[in-house]
Design a binder for these strands. Structure first.
Lengths: 332, 332
DNA sequence: CCTCCTTGCGCAACCGTTTGTCCACATTAT
DNA sequence: ATAATGTGGACAAACGGTTGCGCAAGGAGG
């Protein structure tokens, strides 16, 4: 059996409550008994039972990180893995640990319903508002990559980043710029489309329907989209992809079709994840600051945990353009 | 305040213990009162407090998943993200949830030391045996991608997969086959090298030192390794890379150098993750059955939780070769 | 010398469950 | 009728901590 404060109390010859106070540092205790207790606890290798402590203090020292199943798998296609691990690293500095869970068929994980966490971070879009609101009544909630009024939200500047990418292509002479995405149903992708649209408009161009293609949610979405695009009578001179996955697929399809990237068609992606430097030519891509998003989410939830009345805010992280070779302007 | 069994007991007019038994289905209770209690619990939206239950039953309904920081980030370079999410999906079916944590500077996460989990799954190599053994004294432990005597271990057949890959290249006429890895210090990569060595030996070839290159642990390890290889007076006709990341890097470096894959140099990777189909040409790669590894790990820990005396075993999952285009045998 | 404050610590209640024990009553066998 | 058995539920003691309250001893101030 594990050693408890009662064991320590018996050995030192004090009451369990005294042990509790000595170890937690709260309450009035003489320095000498405090030290005696600490020493014995140390020797016995005492580890507090967090369940008991949690029961008494109504806290769990855990924060839930929930990700929608649509954003799985946590691999090359999704950047949530990095955010998850960043959150874990940050909150663990404050003594919290992470309960990781996915949202299946839009029902909250048991660990949340059963209040086994002190706060929740939701990762990604596609999470029903009706699911989140009630949670927020009882627990601090932080949203990452998603925005809801009255809730603390961490988002990247999708519109601005897309604007930047489109503008970059325009400034290098491209006038026929395609937009390729898996689906425009996804709010992030729609925002990226919006930035694309705004940039074109600002420069006096219009969005051409035939240059906007969606590949759908299937895993070969990239090739489906590119097939659609390559069927057109006139190819664009540049492609702005809504994420790196689609950009990599574009490069692949173009190369296969005997076209050169960036000489025949320039390509710009979005995310600037590890994939960007794994393909050839290396992707010019709009950087989504995943680590910063994770860190910000962690610090927000910690702040909310400390003072739940903290007013909610929307934090927009900027998305700079990382220029590599796929856009063809290297050295210009 | 949340509704407790005391609230229900008061309303129904029974003792809290009766409510507990009615809800859990254990113990003798008349069907009519059981139903009355269930109905009231339902109406009040009762959710059991798992902390209290855990305290009473000495279980937490949580399993810890620990990954060594060396295997981070959880992105294109690591396939542990997929395993993590698979484990979560599986154990949640049995009412468990996942506490995710990384191993920093070789010290166990607090959530484990404080026994906030009922069992632990360790992901990846590089985890100190001295850290794991004591845990195993008190909790069921499962190892994934790592093997320790007396502990239940789930591994993929690295040696066999590498043998298969090398044999495949040999059978298509290649005699100068390079081996490229980040480092041979990693046990998985060493095992893959061993398979490579065994295959060469079986076919009467010897390992040539100049054809075995390591790129180191840096993020541009792939390019460093390829630079070393391309400097040699005589290029190999094929490259067997210890993982997809290095294989993708090899393709990139070869393409950059004006060489064609697979016509000038064939490339075979290892992992067969999402990256394999994202590069051009698509990678022929040895499949590491990540999902199956996750599922197996989950079912092992569930079994161990049910009967802790279960005898430990080593489960080796087979690693078939997925043939695509980078090895140049398509259609042969 | 008496009162008042402070300090250090013990007592006991509480957090919300589970579970062993026991009792009252009903049912059946004798 | 009485005794033996079975049934349904109450009571209370855990589980391992935290925390409000109270009390005794000691020191300071009048």
């Amino acid at each position: 059996m594990r050693v408890t404060i009662h064991d320590i109390a018996r050995i030192v010859g004090v009451a369990p409550s005294t042990v509790s106070r000595a170890l937690s540092g709260k309450g009035r205790i003489s320095p000498t008994t405090r030290e005696r207790i600490r020493k014995v606890a140390e020797e016995l290798g005492y580890q507090p039972n967090m369940l008991a402590r949690g029961l008494a203090t109504r806290s769990t020292c855990a924060i839930g990180v929930v990700i929608h199943e649509r954003h799985l798998p946590l691999d090359e296609r999704s950047f949530y893995g990095v955010i998850l691990e960043t959150i874990e690293a940050e909150v663990s500095k404050h003594g919290y640990h992470v309960v990781f869970s996915t949202l299946r068929n839009q029902s909250l994980p048991r660990c949340i319903k059963e209040r086994r966490v002190d706060g929740v971070i939701f990762l990604g879009t596609d999470i029903n508002e009706e699911l989140i609101r009630p949670i927020n009544e009882e627990l601090p909630v932080v949203l990452v990559d998603h925005c809801l009024s009255g809730l603390t939200s961490i988002v990247s500047d999708n519109v601005g980043g897309a604007y930047l990418a489109t503008e970059h292509l325009f400034s290098h002479g491209h006038r026929e710029i395609a937009f390729v995405a898996e689906t425009l149903e996804d709010p992030s992708f729609r925002a990226r489309f919006e930035g694309y649209r705004q940039a074109l408009e600002w420069y006096g161009l219009r969005v051409k329907k035939e240059l906007v293609v969606e590949g759908g949610r299937r895993s070969d979405s990239d090739q489906i989209a590119m097939k659609k695009l390559l069927r057109k009578r006139k190819l664009p001179t540049a492609i702005f992809a809504a994420n790196d996955f689609m950009a990599a697929g574009a490069i692949k399809a173009l190369t296969k079709a005997g076209l050169s990237v960036p000489d025949d068609v320039a390509v710009v992606g979005f995310d600037d994840g590890a994939l960007a430097t794994l393909v050839h030519p290396p992707l010019t891509s709009v950087r989504v600051p995943r680590v910063e998003m994770g860190k910000t989410a962690a610090s927000c939830i910690i702040k909310l945990l400390a003072s739940p009345s903290e007013t909610s805010q929307v934090i927009v992280l900027s998305t700079p353009l990382t220029i590599r070779e796929s856009c063809g302007c290297k050295g210009t």
